[in-house]
Design a protein around this nucleic acid. Structure first.
Lengths: 196, 196
DNA sequence: GTGAGTACCAAACGTTCGTTACGTACCCTA
DNA sequence: TAGGGTACGTAACGAACGTTTGGTACTCAC
């Protein structure tokens, strides 16, 4: 029995969904074709039908992860200036189970990303894009007088990016000591520091 | 020909050395018994002679990594107060090839550490110990009047830890954009924010 | 209704992994 | 000098992996 035969793209999305669940549960190191196949009650043959190699599957999985992350982050588009920077950083923090899963995937991908040139280049580009988006908020905040005039946008942007990603790591390993309220409080403390 | 037969502990140290080189080059995901054996021109039989399982080998490897990290960090014991906090954070940053290798190992270990309960507990304890050491410097700085009186030591400690680890990640992926001088400048900027 | 193409499953392939079994050379003690 | 423990190398084992192959069932065009 062909189970709910949809079109090609819909099926690829199903595969991506299963990949995502495996990634969130076991990390990139635990991602195997058999695990994904089991996750969607299918065979490894199905996977190779849509993705010729595991490399292609991982590549697509990380693209999906980025789409998901962007969609996740686009929930608060109304803010401006410093508030928009705060919102953008809050979007990245693991404040919800979904956010934690997201970060889990990214942090776990760093092992392979540091070892594989292609994945490394992709991750580098992703981090750059993220800093670029943050920078716009920083500039906007300075223009509105919410940051000191002498603020170096690149420096503050890099600083905020670093702070947030580091907090992600610590919160991921120590969720009890870094509940959402404390993460938020720590971020606000950081923002207080850059406003001078 | 038995190659330079030393005592048991010396040989174990040789194994640890080879493990370290493999870890620094390929990450925890690329650590295999055969890679380690090849690194020290030996057989996998030698490895199992000193470490019964791969788990034991990885466990010991991370212990060695921590010893190395601690030894690396104990180079600047003379400072006090805010200067000692700065020194402790600088010790962690990938300012040298050795420091980069160190961080590479830790970041790459996070994949397995998030998936394996035992490794996760070890990494959690390591992060806690590190924050504990940082906290002492924060308290010392506050006592010397280098930080505002109303400073919450736990909050500032967690903030500094997060900032530094995040900077580690960004510098690891983007060494060109985060050379040692900029890392130092960013850290100083962060410390400026803390001092109010 | 026949042929080509799509969408799979089941099974197997070759490789690599961690682990184990077995042999051998060495050292130390009695 | 005989015997037992230590220190390996060699080789093989079974499991798991990514990949390939061969086949079946369905769909659509002609």
């Amino acid at each position: 029995m062909p189970p709910a035969r949809g079109d090609h793209e819909a099926r690829r999305a199903d595969v991506s969904e299963a990949v995502w669940r495996v990634l969130a549960a076991k990390g990139l190191g635990g991602l195997t074709l058999r695990a994904v196949a089991a996750e969607m009650d299918a065979s490894t043959g199905l996977l190779t039908h849509y993705f010729p190699t595991k490399r292609a599957l991982v590549r697509h999985a990380l693209v999906v992860a980025e789409e998901r992350t962007s969609a996740f982050a686009r929930r608060t588009p109304e803010a401006e200036g410093l508030a928009s920077l705060r919102a953008a950083l809050l979007d990245v923090l693991p404040l919800t189970p979904g956010g934690a899963a997201m970060n889990r995937v990214w942090v776990s991908s760093w092992d392979a990303s540091l070892a594989d040139p292609e994945l490394r280049a992709n991750e580098l580009a992703r981090l750059e894009r993220w800093r670029g988006r943050l920078r716009a908020h920083v500039v906007s905040a300075r223009e509105r007088g919410e940051l000191p005039e002498e603020t170096d946008a690149d420096e503050v942007t890099a600083s905020a990016a670093a702070f947030t990603h580091g907090l992600v790591v610590h919160a991921l390993f120590d969720p009890d000591r870094f509940p959402p309220e404390r993460q938020t409080a720590l971020l606000d403390g950081f923002l207080r520091g850059i406003t001078g």
